[in-house]
Structure formats: structure tokens, C-alpha cells
Simulated assay, not measured.
Amino acid sequence: MTTSEARGRARGRTAVAEPRQTRSQEGLIRMLEAGRALIEASGNLDELSINDIVERAGTSIGAFYRRFDNKDTFFEVVQDRVMTESIEFVRAELAGRPAWRSADAGVLADATVGLYVRAFRRNRGLYHASLLRSSQHKESWNAVKETSTEVLALIVPLLVDAIHAARGRAARKAALDFDVRAALQLVIGLLVNSVLHDPGPLSLSSRRLEPYLQAQFRRCVGLPGT
């Protein structure tokens, strides 16, 4: 079962069946890509028009309703698709960027914060729409939370091991694990706030955001500043 299918099952729905014909499959992909772009631009599901989706995708209203019951179902499929891509992106980052192979806890800490900042900037509109929708549909933010849990499972052990090695045997890994997760909760909370209330003292587009969060994260886990 894929991550997206698991999320769909958890919400009590099944993933959209892949169309058998190549042309129909291409139309489905274009609709999902069009919807993704429109959601990212508006950040509000209420402003998402099915007419705009099919016009941008070059398909039809009939093609949309052959695949999706309504706009909410469409949004959930787009959201699941983006979250699955996000996990793949993180795995590629961890495999490809030299920072993730560093034994320096500070380098890993900065890389972690940088990864979250990029993710929120890349998905700002989708996150904003998900947060707004969660006021009426409590489960709307679940896909993002589930993805965050998967990301934490990949990143936290790397940070804990590096900090443990830096501090020596006196440091307990269980305590370090808590410190890292709590510090990341603070980082994520500030990023969520920036999505909802941007612009603010630390706008999501501000150049000061990433270094500020990196400094705060280091302080929370007891690492020297840059």
C-alpha cells in the first residue's frame, strides 16, 4: 500500500482509480496538476472553481465528475499526491545532500530547519487551504500531520545520534529525542503561524526566517550558534 492509499483508507475513502486509457490518464494528471497550481496560487478551496480546473487542464466538466464526486474529493486527492511527493523529496534530500552525511550536529540541525522552511514555502497555498478547511473538516490537516510524522522518523534519529556523539555518554538518547522533537514542534508551529498570518515579523518569504529559526533550534537542543 502506498502512503497516499494509506491516507485515503484512514479517511474512510479509497484512492481515485487510475484510468485505463492513456488519453484518460493524461487528462487526470493534467487536472491534478492544474488543481495543484490553482490551490497554490489562491490558498483557499472556496476560490477553487471546477471550471477553472478543467479549463486550465484542457479537459471537461464531464471528465472531472467521472473521476471525482466533488471539489472536496478532488482537493483530498491533490493533497495526498503532494504529501507523497513531499516524502519522496525528503528521501532524495537525505540521500543527495552532503549535509545529511555530516557528523556535525550543528550542520544537521541547520539542514533540518532549512528543509522545513523550503517545504512550507513550496506548499504555502496548499497548507493554507488545508488549515482553513480544517475549521470545518477536522481531518483536513491529517495528511500533513501524517507526512510530518514520516519525516520526523527519517530525520530525528540522525539528529539524536549526532548530538549524542557531540555530548558524549553523559547524554541520554531518550532525553535528546524529546528535546529534538519539542524544538521541531516550535519550528513547525511558527511556520504554520506564518502561513496563516503572513506577512508578520517573520514572513514566510523573509530572508531572516531561516537563519532565525536555525539559531532558535540550535539553542533549544543545546548546540552552539553559528
Rank of each mutant, 00 (worst) to 15 (best):
E55H: 02
A166V: 07
V187E: 04
H137R: 13
A6Q: 15
S203L: 05
R219Y: 14
V82L: 06
R122D: 10
Q185R: 10
V192W: 11
A166H: 08
F75W: 06
G58Y: 01
F74G: 00
T149W: 14
Y212A: 11
V160L: 06
K173T: 15
S4T: 11
A182F: 11
L48A: 02
G106T: 02
A57Y: 00
A170L: 12
F64M: 00
G200E: 06
I53W: 00
L132T: 10
T226G: 15
V221A: 05
V16S: 08
G62P: 05
E26C: 11
R20Y: 15
Q185F: 13
R9F: 13
V113K: 03
S135L: 15
L32T: 03
D69M: 04
E150Q: 09
A111F: 01
I87Y: 12
R7S: 13
T226S: 15
I163G: 02
L158R: 06
G114I: 02
A215R: 09
A166Y: 06
I188R: 08
E33C: 11
T59F: 01
S130I: 03
A175I: 14
R30K: 09
N142C: 13
D179T: 08
R167P: 08
R118T: 08
A215G: 08
S206A: 07
A215H: 07
V78P: 03
N51E: 06
G114K: 00
F64W: 00
G200L: 09
Q21W: 15
S203V: 03
E88V: 10
N193I: 14
Y116Q: 09
L154D: 02
A109W: 00
H164E: 10
L209N: 03
